[in-house]
């Protein structure tokens, strides 16, 4: 079952996606030097410059002000399409927005976020609740939790896999950008591939899940074959369908 409720009624659907994106790492704030180098590149590989979307990264610069408008103009002259800016302070963020560009936080901060162990897309209360009995060592953006995830708690690994050593009780919710592994009974809701990854799975030792979801395609408890309840299973996505198979 997928989120396509009724094609005729729905004007659009939001989908998480990971698109390949060219990042232009600026080593200088001088638009003229950028223009010179771009002109050289354009001669070498004209095929690349076909209104290619780029993200301008200003992380390596420590200039508080930036001739952002001029830089964008230089890019467009060379058939690059700036779509967003990454890094820089508040001033750069504001000017990016003023130019109709998106803004991303610097990469260091985003990489550091999962190490702090807490989910930022959850309410502060839920995040704090799950804190106490977790040991949560960060593993390349993944996360390990020992203990019982209780009703009302929400636990997430926004950058990797989530491993629960213990039970996930009814009314609890676990989310991961990658796969979800539960070494214990899964009675709550489990969502894998929350940013759209389809090549991920949900694994648990005892299936009683209220909801299983991979990349937005979901199955409710009611849709799960009763034969599979209580079983040790693997859940994968194929052709917008969740497939559940028992593991020996």
């Amino acid at each position: 079952m997928s989120l396509k409720v009724d094609r005729a009624e729905v004007a659009f659907t939001f989908k998480g996606g990971m698109l390949p994106m060219t990042v232009m790492e600026l080593a200088t704030a001088d638009p003229e030097r950028v223009a010179t180098q771009l002109a050289g590149k354009l001669n070498q590989s004209p095929a690349f410059f076909q209104h290619t979307p780029v993200v301008l990264s200003v992380e390596k610069l420590d200039a508080p002000h930036l001739a952002l408008e001029r830089l964008c103009a230089v890019c467009r002259e060379h058939k690059l399409l700036p779509v967003a800016v990454r890094g820089g302070g508040d001033g750069i963020k504001q000017s990016a927005w003023a130019l109709g560009l998106g803004w991303f936080p610097p990469q260091e901060i985003r990489a550091a976020a999962p190490a702090s162990g807490e989910a930022h897309d959850t309410g502060a209360e839920a995040a704090a609740e799950a804190r106490e009995n977790s040991e949560a060592p960060a593993l390349e953006g993944g996360r390990i939790f020992r203990g019982t995830v209780r009703s009302g708690q929400q636990l997430s690994a926004p950058h990797g896999d989530l491993v629960i050593v213990g039970a996930v009780n009814a009314g609890a919710e676990i989310l991961a950008a990658g796969s979800v592994h539960v070494y214990g009974p899964l009675r709550g809701r489990a969502l894998a591939g929350i940013h759209g990854s389809r090549e991920v799975g949900i694994f648990c030792q005892e299936l009683h899940a209220e909801l299983l979801s991979i990349a937005g395609n979901y199955k409710r408890l009611e849709d799960i074959d009763v034969e599979l309840l209580g079983a040790n299973v693997e859940v994968r996505l194929s052709e917008d369908q969740l497939n559940i198979r028992t593991l020996v």
Partner: peptide, 18 residues
């Protein structure tokens, strides 16, 4: 049982000891 589960979550986070 479910409500008790919820309370146990709060005991682990919303108390002075936590």
């Amino acid at each position: 049982v479910r409500d008790s589960d919820r309370i146990l979550g709060l005991l682990a986070s919303k108390t002075r000891r936590a």
